[in-house]
Design a protein around this nucleic acid. Sequence first.
DNA 1: TTGTATGCGTTATCAG
DNA 2: CTGATAACGCATACAA
Lengths: 345, 345
Amino acid sequence: MAANRRPTLADVAREVGVSAKTVSRVLNEDGPVSARTREQVLAAVAKLGFQPNLMARNIRVGGPDTTIGLVIPDLANPFFGAVARAIEDTVGDRGLTLLMGSSADDPERERALTDKFLARRVSILIVVPSVGADHSHLKSQRTAGLPVVFLDRPGVGLVTDSIVSSNRAGAQEGVAHLIAHGHRRIGFVGDLPPKLYTRRERQAGYRSALLAADIPYDRALVANAHDQSGAEAATAGLLGLADPPTALFAGNNIMALGIVAELARSKRKEVAVVAFDDVALAEALEPALTVVAQDAEELGRVAATTALARLDGDRGRARTLTVPTRLIVRGSGEQPAPRTRPRTT
Amino acid sequence: MAANRRPTLADVAREVGVSAKTVSRVLNEDGPVSARTREQVLAAVAKLGFQPNLMARNIRVGGPDTTIGLVIPDLANPFFGAVARAIEDTVGDRGLTLLMGSSADDPERERALTDKFLARRVSILIVVPSVGADHSHLKSQRTAGLPVVFLDRPGVGLVTDSIVSSNRAGAQEGVAHLIAHGHRRIGFVGDLPPKLYTRRERQAGYRSALLAADIPYDRALVANAHDQSGAEAATAGLLGLADPPTALFAGNNIMALGIVAELARSKRKEVAVVAFDDVALAEALEPALTVVAQDAEELGRVAATTALARLDGDRGRARTLTVPTRLIVRGSGEQPAPRTRPRTT
DNA sequence: TTGTATGCGTTATCAG
DNA sequence: CTGATAACGCATACAA
């Protein structure tokens, strides 16, 4: 049998012997309909397995579609997974459906995704901006009333709401924590590219903490990596220095995985560690991992709430909202610096 | 300024002084267009910021929309995040956009999501079935040509392709591994509800392994939990038994987190552990976590590939494809059983 | 190379 | 309470 055409309003109407509009009325609880025709219509709908074509409806009604477009770097990253989940939960009450895609931090992929979403007339656009992306092309959309919210990082070329973690203050707190435990040579393992907003902010927090403690900034102690295995190599590199760090600060969750894995592999667990962003099983490690935890759920919730407020007509000026981080002390960050090196008076 | 109406084909046409059809031709590289009008049209498109309305286009063309609907239990679960990412990558080449939602393993939410997706005329539907869900309502869709693929678990009431892990064999291998290291009292911590397909299959594998080794099945050694903290409590409960297990088998990644966390907290690391599904940092734990790894990427890739083949006209009978699991030996599963108890000859 | 008439599936408008 | 007609934004068929 051939693939039958999906039934339409007209099919249902013909089945019952009424007009299409009447069926429409029943389904949308629009105008008044007699109980009898109503029943007949519903019966026919069930019989034919009719489902209204949302796209056709939308075209006619005209407004934005009941979807929300979400662009994140990587669906498989637990941090962004948690963010996406929070967004979904928040906008779900409004009946919005999630349209999402991974940019892989590639500006072109990001642009392709946002264009697709705009072509689908999403009600809201939430974007984690890729490095090097320019968002001025969204200006007309914004002035036309489309809520655009940047998440995790600010966007470029467009004035709109941004929701970010307290990256700089959080990193500073984490590094200061290490310093308070006697460390003066503290390595920083950050993600790539170095221009990435979160990377820059966290590294700035790292520098501030050093500065506040009168510790000179040593470029040799800063390493970069793309992924976990890169972070493992970077960690090994830092520990192989002539004057190696006694503590490490992880720039994000993936870097943390690499550092922890490498320290376990090379049995260098005396090296103190504080990581930005929490990871699963942090408490079960030995030592348990001290982290500057981001609140992924709150990040997503605030982004979604802000966007919904805009959708509801909030015309206030663009805001940048900062979601606080929280230092969670578990052990790895409290390991003291060894006294092997002579102290400068 | 008021939210201006988005420009349409007609607006662009008017701007240039041509017909809508000509603009359409330029944009879709359809019929022949003179270089000059072509330029003019493109200029006008840029000037007005016109973006074709994909929904309107789709309605006219008639076929399914270039979207793929994906229903998973939880976007924030790293396993499903990895699956989703693999699906996205696989269908991305075909230009399909991901429409997704979390069911929270609730049949009603699952139904609501699939209905939304169907109303949007998705090209493909990939569903991780919730416990208790019935999928017979998708029959008409399937016969109408919509590829429907079940992922991770088989669906109920609909004969269609299913992609699952080798749950039973994998669990059996994992438990046999523990038995090979001398364990005879092996606890099983499974997720809820007990009727969940993956749970049942893995527990069946557990029983098979016991049976093969002539070890009696003891219901007291089987515990259940919803989430990580529940798994921690379940683990504590098992270890508090009068005749406690010397080894534990985790029914999924979340249960694994709970077991590992609880063993670390209570300093009972001599208890051997094998977990179904890999977790981050498994290698960095002490002892490193031995797992029966699922191939989330492959699961997603196979599901997407199968669905695309159907979309391309494959009318072969419904298949159930099993993606193999792999035992990864890391340490926790090789810890020997203590000799404290007398051996039965 | 370009335009006109028509229709996709739905809802708005207005008449009955 | 119900229906006929037009219209949403776009593409198809055919003509010019």
